[in-house]
């Protein structure tokens, strides 16, 4: 599993013997995985295979679901993020997330981006202006909205709203960006824009994406992980996994025999 890209990029996230239960339902079974920094890692697999659940363990959004129990190790940058001295809010500031449905706040474009920085104590107008501009530029949305920053975020199209949500996540200066099927509600052109954006962002951020779309995983990711029924079946360089999968189940899935 160690090939060129991985050798070049250091490991940032380390998952060991991870088991997760929703009540009595065993959602993740004994997952072992390393995720390299400043690269794109894609989680693929059929619905209900646990890929989104695993993604949400990385910013502890599963904590909010009653009856969730977790065993094993998830370490990020050398720290066990489930240890008691980890502040969940600080973790989430460093691990941004973009959701399946664009979920801008019912506020102006400007206030959407400024929400996070304000939360974390930035009050100066000039500093906020700077962050808003930088974040929107990073999300390649600045040119489209720079004259309408006071307008409601809902005046944007679905694709623009999703890029706004990416900009909002980037505004708090995270290290990791989680994308939970971030393009599944979008049209093909908006999807393409976001995929291009991901290629830009991976120079600066560690990106972990969940996708239903295998072509998208093949196009945009460096490393791909295949899940089935809560188990991690295979993970490898994206090229290898799609051209020469080592597990029969992976092959069946990527050739469209099920899922």
């Amino acid at each position: 599993m160690s090939t060129a890209t991985q050798a070049a990029n250091q490991t940032l996230i380390h998952i060991e013997q991870l088991n997760l239960y929703y009540g009595t339902y065993h959602a993740l079974k004994n997952v072992n995985l390393t995720i390299p920094e400043k690269a794109v890692t894609a989680f693929i697999g059929p619905s209900g295979c646990g890929k989104s659940t695993l993604l949400r363990t990385l910013n502890r959004m599963n904590d909010m679901i009653d009856g969730t129990r977790i065993e094993g190790l998830v370490s990020m940058g050398g720290t066990d993020i489930y240890s008691s001295d980890v502040d969940v809010e600080t973790l989430r500031k460093k691990v941004g997330m973009v959701f399946q449905q664009p979920n801008p706040f019912p506020k102006s474009i400007y206030d959407n981006i400024a929400y996070g920085p304000r939360l974390h104590g930035i009050k100066s107008k000039s500093q906020l202006d700077e962050i808003v501009e930088q974040s929107l530029k990073q999300a390649v949305l600045w040119d489209e909205v720079k004259d309408y920053l006071k307008r409601s975020a809902f005046s944007l199209s679905g694709g623009q709203q999703q890029r706004l949500c990416i900009a909002r996540a980037l505004a708090v200066n995270p290290d990791v960006l989680l994308m939970d099927e971030a393009t599944s509600a979008l049209d093909p052109i908006s999807t393409l824009k976001i995929e291009e954006l991901v290629q830009e962002l991976k120079n600066k951020y560690t990106i972990v994406m969940v996708t239903h779309n295998m072509q998208q995983a093949a196009r945009t990711s460096d490393q791909t992980v295949f899940f089935l029924n809560g188990e991690m079946v295979e993970f490898d360089q994206t090229e290898t996994l799609f051209s020469n999968p080592s597990d029969k189940r992976t092959e069946d899935y990527i050739t469209g025999r099920f899922g």
Partner: peptide, 9 residues
């Protein structure tokens, strides 16, 4: 909307 805000810390 709540999730969006929680995810920002």
């Amino acid at each position: 909307l709540r999730h969006g805000a929680y995810a920002l810390g």
